[in-house]
Design a protein around this nucleic acid. Sequence first.
DNA 1: GCTCTTTAGTTGTAGCGTCAATAGTTAATG
DNA 2: CATTAACTATTGACGCTACAACTAAAGAGC
Lengths: 161, 161
Amino acid sequence: MDDFRWLTPDQLQAWKKLVAVVELLPGVLDSQLQRDAELTHFEYFTLAMLSEAPEHTLRMTALAAITNATLPRLSHVATRLEKRGYIQRSPCPDDRRATNATLTPQGWDKVVATAPGHVTTVVDNVIDPLNARDIADLDRIMTKLLVPLDPENKFGSRDRP
Amino acid sequence: MDDFRWLTPDQLQAWKKLVAVVELLPGVLDSQLQRDAELTHFEYFTLAMLSEAPEHTLRMTALAAITNATLPRLSHVATRLEKRGYIQRSPCPDDRRATNATLTPQGWDKVVATAPGHVTTVVDNVIDPLNARDIADLDRIMTKLLVPLDPENKFGSRDRP
DNA sequence: GCTCTTTAGTTGTAGCGTCAATAGTTAATG
DNA sequence: CATTAACTATTGACGCTACAACTAAAGAGC
């Protein structure tokens, strides 16, 4: 690490800043949501993805995919969200191995009540500091990064909405 | 979340991709380091920052700053790293409240041995997918994001190296 | 039809991070 | 000076995630 530079100075600098953002951003999102809604960002994002799904329902595997989560992680979170009455799980009729997760009316209300504060946090911390060109560049760069991070596009992160 | 768009489609898309990267990148870094060196990325980064410091020594607060960590987090990590013989803590002579963390020779060896594999992972997942313009854009955008994420520049993330 | 493999999901455990509380030290105020 | 406030660091408890092991059902090969 002393006299041999593995990354160029420009690369190293950009990398360190990316690391800083990756370390700091989750904390900012989590603490606002924890304070205002007693939800982690991942819990909120899970509810939000269900709220955008047809019939507010997705199979666990599909939900894990669009939330970029492993199945065990989602399963634990689903247990907690179900206990709190925000979602309900039911066996899938088509495939008896599968489970459907459905947003309950209370879950919908929770998303509706929580969204404004969360979006404000996102706007303040991510959208407002950037102009239109920055947003376009950010999108382009993140798309490129997701190729190796998610090689099979398993999580569908690179799809258009 | 249905008929009222809080973010424009472009903003929403860029935001979702940033979230995906923030969720996926730590796992990729952690699993390589865990597999090859039994180190978390944060542990490695902590050792690396010490390896670049004068006399391989930093005060806990300063170390927490450049690693973007809270003090309790660093304190726990320091306990583990000290037990494994990679760092040593000693009271600071100048300020009896303060503690200095110093990289041990074994800690230095660990960094030297671990760096190549880690850098390869970074290159494969972050540097190679991007061209020079992307790197410059990434640096510019991350710098802007760090303003609200780290308002007082407490962590020094925006400083030149 | 019967194995063998793959897929879907859950559960338990161990490890890491956050938060609140604490102790000890220094600086600021009157 | 004496008192209060602010800073530095650690600790313990609790919650969340990763990993491995496991159950159960669907598909593949013969």
